[in-house]
Nucleic acid binder design. Sequence first.
DNA 1: CGTCGACTTGAGTTAACTCAAATCATGTGG
DNA 2: CCACATGATTTGAGTTAACTCAAGTCGACG
Lengths: 231, 231
Amino acid sequence: MDPATDLLSFPLFHSIKKENQAELTDICSRRNYKRHEMIYAEGDECDGFHIIISGKIKIYKLSIEGKEQILQIFKEGEPFGEVAVFDGKRFPAYAESLTETHTYFFPADDFISLLLKNPAIALNMLSVMSIRLKRYKSLIEDLALKEVPNRLAAHLLYLSDMSGGTDMLTLDISKGQMANILGTMQSTLSRALGKMKAHGYVELHPQKRILLKNREALEKLASGQKLFDSP
Amino acid sequence: MDPATDLLSFPLFHSIKKENQAELTDICSRRNYKRHEMIYAEGDECDGFHIIISGKIKIYKLSIEGKEQILQIFKEGEPFGEVAVFDGKRFPAYAESLTETHTYFFPADDFISLLLKNPAIALNMLSVMSIRLKRYKSLIEDLALKEVPNRLAAHLLYLSDMSGGTDMLTLDISKGQMANILGTMQSTLSRALGKMKAHGYVELHPQKRILLKNREALEKLASGQKLFDSP
DNA sequence: CGTCGACTTGAGTTAACTCAAATCATGTGG
DNA sequence: CCACATGATTTGAGTTAACTCAAGTCGACG
């Protein structure tokens, strides 16, 4: 639990210079959140960003009627809230813990001056943000160009990738939350999953588990092809 | 037309160190594209990124049926293609010139080593990418949570912002391309604009010009409120 | 003035939405 | 260990925004 060694284990800081390691430890502080606690709201002034030590949080937007669109779910090791650090002032979305969560918090100004002394970390940060941009681009593509079953297939395959390519997924969120990631309703998601089951592409098991049975078909769906309702 | 002074005029390079200015000039080269030329395709290996000297390009995704979703349109002074430089290997979307376009091209490796010597430029780049992430977040929000008329209102107000807050917009793209930005069909866009006109929110003028007549109503629409079909 | 691409309008269809009811899981206290 | 309560999920029925396809109109430009 020594912060110094702890911090260096995050990929973001691997390449920090020896002489700045103490500074890194100094500027960061620990923050703790209970389940379902608001970490920041859209429009809040940005004071810094977090790296997750343990737990799980969601970044989301709210419509005027209160419907939510989840932009991303972050787990241990991942930074969040960094956008507001570099572009200026305010958080562009909400952040809320899904489980009990512990983070290291880095004040914006201190972190920027650390970056100026450690360009390698700035490069790491650029790479983190690049990956995020990429993900957002494909989310936009999905929302604009694909229908729900196709988005669902893409998401299932993504989840499988994230857990090392296994065919037996264990969802760590409710199906309602998953619908919010896919930009649809719980009932629509349920029907889409039902159809996939009927076609033998997946099996639904208790305790939020889903078995992928026909990867090939799912890949086709994910790439935008329509496989349902042909005959 | 001296590249050296030219390059320094881009905000990205304002803070470059004196001793690296020559290097900056050395590594970059000029590229020229005719109207409607493909600059790179999704999945292409990334060799570097561009800054636009003059002209206009679109970044877009294609669905399997060939429908396009425009992610962004870039004009003079803006960098593009930088995501692939920092995260690795391949371009996540297509880039195509909309008009005759001239750019400075920076090879990825050379640029990264320049960044390591000029952390301030890395910070500028982080800020550029932060702004992009923010824009994508709100595009996702719009696509997932709002209907076409609301997205249209938001986009009109955005265009007005971009041109200094004027009420008389001059579109620099066709309505068909605009529909692709909004994630909808040309015909749907046309109907939505028609409704806005009928309600007196906008006036449609020849030569791609649109006059915003009721900003307040447009703001309400943009924030997700439904104003149509009440009586 | 004619032609070509851009835009609008019309008619019919559909994916996904809303709202509501029914069912299923899970955890708790008796 | 069972019965019930609570929340999550599924199913049903009706509605709607937006889609497709097609035809018609406008407008810019040679």
